[in-house]
Simulated assay, not measured.
Amino acid sequence: MAEDRAALEGKTVLVIGGSSGFGLEVARLAQAHGARLLIVGRDLEKAARVAEGFRMAGGSAQGFGLDATDAAALSGLLEGESPVDHAVSMVGGAMGGGFLGADLATIRQAIEEKFFANLGIARTLAPFLAENGSLILTAGSGGRPDNASGAIVGNEAIGTLVRGLAVELAPRVRVNAVAPTWTPTPLWRNVAAPDIEQTRARFTEQIPLRRTGEPVEVAQAYLFLMQCGFITGQTVVVDGGLSLVT
């Protein structure tokens, strides 16, 4: 465990979407391993509040409010904070509906939010990433093309993106992705509680481990990808075995 901590001790970790959900858990784990945190969220007040909490706990953290898909804004932040040792992007949404059931604009938006947003972020981040650093994107698993069409295309495109970037940025930087299945996080804050519980029950029935995951369990995959220096171009699926039976 001491060697694991040493891998992140004093390193700068940028978490885009680090003020809630998976991103917040990644930040907590990285901070526990001695990393210096850069927390980015759209809401400056929230990001600053989260960073202050980390500082009060004895860590080093700064919070920034910006749209990470705005290349000029993200570059402006990085020019003052680089090099970044490890960057994590939680950017991407969810959607329901098949190729015929969902409207075209919704499908396009899902692909835009998954693939093109992260492509832009990666292009902006690349010059600011440190030697032997890493970039970790977020895909997803658990849906099917007939009920989550645009999201599935976007998730598969993230896998393609990390395979390409891993070669283009090697050997200086490693690039990977994490693909969680449905997990109760603030992403679903606008969904009624009974609907959340119904979704949880449905996934619990389908997942071989007979439960849904915890956000911290998903976050552990991001930490593994930061710490393991001999893995690149991979998408790590964190779904309790759901992909084995669907």
Rank of each mutant, 00 (worst) to 15 (best):
M1W: 00
M1S: 14
A2W: 00
R5V: 14
R5W: 01
A6M: 13
A6T: 09
G10W: 08
V15M: 05
G17Y: 06
G17H: 07
S20E: 13
G23C: 09
Q31S: 15
G34A: 11
A35D: 09
I39W: 07
G41M: 04
L44E: 15
L44V: 12
E45S: 15
E45D: 15
K46L: 12
A47R: 07
A48S: 15
V50Y: 01
M56S: 15
G58F: 09
G59F: 07
A61N: 11
A61R: 11
G65V: 06
G65T: 07
L66G: 02
A68G: 04
A68S: 08
A71F: 00
S75N: 13
G76F: 10
L77E: 03
E81D: 08
D85F: 09
A87Y: 04
A87W: 01
V88D: 01
G92I: 10
G92L: 11
G93C: 12
M95K: 08
G98T: 10
A102S: 15
I107H: 05
R108K: 14
Q109S: 15
A117F: 05
L119K: 06
I121D: 05
A130S: 13
L135I: 01
I136F: 00
L137V: 07
L137W: 03
A139M: 11
A139Y: 05
G140H: 03
G140I: 01
S141K: 06
R144Q: 13
P145N: 12
A148I: 02
A148P: 00
G150P: 04
A151F: 10
I152P: 00
G154E: 06
N155Y: 12
I158S: 05
T160I: 10
V162G: 02
G164D: 02
A166S: 13
A170I: 10
P171A: 11
V175K: 02
V178L: 07
A179L: 11
A179E: 08
P180W: 03
W182H: 03
W182A: 04
W182E: 01
R189E: 14
R189L: 08
A193N: 00
P194G: 11
I196A: 06
E197C: 10
Q198T: 14
A201R: 13
T204N: 12
T204W: 00
Q206E: 13
Q206W: 11
I207M: 07
L209R: 12
L209V: 15
R210W: 00
R210N: 12
R210V: 02
R211D: 10
R211K: 15
T212V: 15
G213D: 05
P215A: 10
A219T: 04
A221K: 03
Y222V: 10
L223Y: 04
F224E: 06
C228D: 13
F230T: 07
I231F: 02
G233I: 02
T235R: 06
V237H: 04
D239I: 03
G240C: 05
L244I: 04
V245F: 04
